[in-house]
């Protein structure tokens, strides 16, 4: 069966209520904005979202904010919950204060490693990041190599929505510049990874030396062209 989907709507059609969804990107770069718009249109409820920044406020107009605003989200696992000037209350913080959304705040490198571990079949790992802070609350602490470390568990999801610069029809992916960020590791950490791609080429159109995400990790591809 072909992995290539005609539309984002078809590609997200089976994301149902209660799903856990990873969303690639860092600020606007590498953010699958067309898939996010399609998901909002489809409108599943009680989603758990894993995403680097969920504070809104960056330059990109389309972000996971649109799902939170639509009342589709019950939990967010993120590094950025408030934006820039900490005096501003973000949409996410407002929703959390109103008891509508649960937020799990994770240090950025720990988030990346938990996602990579999820994709790599690792159950958990020890890290020195967050020791002695709120990020360590309720977690096992061990001294390893003379340094205190906390136990962090892997993260997996039902779906990953990612964005790539180029794909072949098998789903081999190439990212561009700083739009790579969380996309390759999220591609590995879900049962179903859906890639929004700017350019689609035939099999053989990408040099094997250049493939950044091998096609085994990618289930669906939607060519959307370049969207800012």
């Amino acid at each position: 069966m072909s992995k290539v989907f005609e539309s984002c709507a078809e590609a997200v059609a089976d994301i149902e209520d209660g799903a856990t969804v990873m969303v690639g990107g860092f600020t606007g770069r590498g953010t699958p904005s067309q898939l996010l718009l399609a998901l909002r249109e489809k409108g599943p409820k009680n989603l758990a979202i894993v995403r680097n920044d969920a504070s809104g406020g960056w330059k990109n107009p389309i972000d996971v904010d649109i799902l939170i605003e639509a009342g589709m989200v019950r939990k967010v696992i993120t590094c950025f919950a408030v934006f820039g000037s900490p005096k501003k209350v973000s949409l996410l913080e407002r929703a959390a204060m109103d008891g509508l959304v649960e937020v799990e705040l994770v240090p950025q490198g720990t988030l990346a490693e938990r996602i990579r571990a999820g994709g790599a079949g690792i159950g958990a790992f020890y890290t020195p990041v967050g020791v002695g802070t709120e990020a360590a609350a309720g977690k096992e602490v061990r001294v390893i190599g003379g340094r205190e470390m906390i136990l962090e568990h892997a993260l997996k999801a039902d779906f990953s929505l990612i964005k790539a610069h180029r794909a072949d029809t098998l789903g081999n992916l190439v990212y561009r510049m700083s739009a790579r960020n969380f996309n390759p590791i999220m591609a590995m950490a879900s049962r179903t990874t859906i890639a929004e791609v700017e350019n689609l080429v035939d099999v053989g159109g990408i040099d094997p030396d250049e493939v950044m995400t091998p096609c085994v990790f990618v289930r669906r591809i939607v060519p959307t062209g370049k969207v800012a």
């Binding site: 950025f80 408030v82 973000s90 913080e93 959390a96 240090p107 950025q108 020195p128 990020a135």
Partner: peptide, 14 residues
């Protein structure tokens, strides 16, 4: 405040 942003600060500090 209810929430903040760790970003990469905890990782960098450690």
């Amino acid at each position: 405040r209810k929430l903040g942003s760790y970003g990469g600060a905890m990782d960098l500090a450690a």
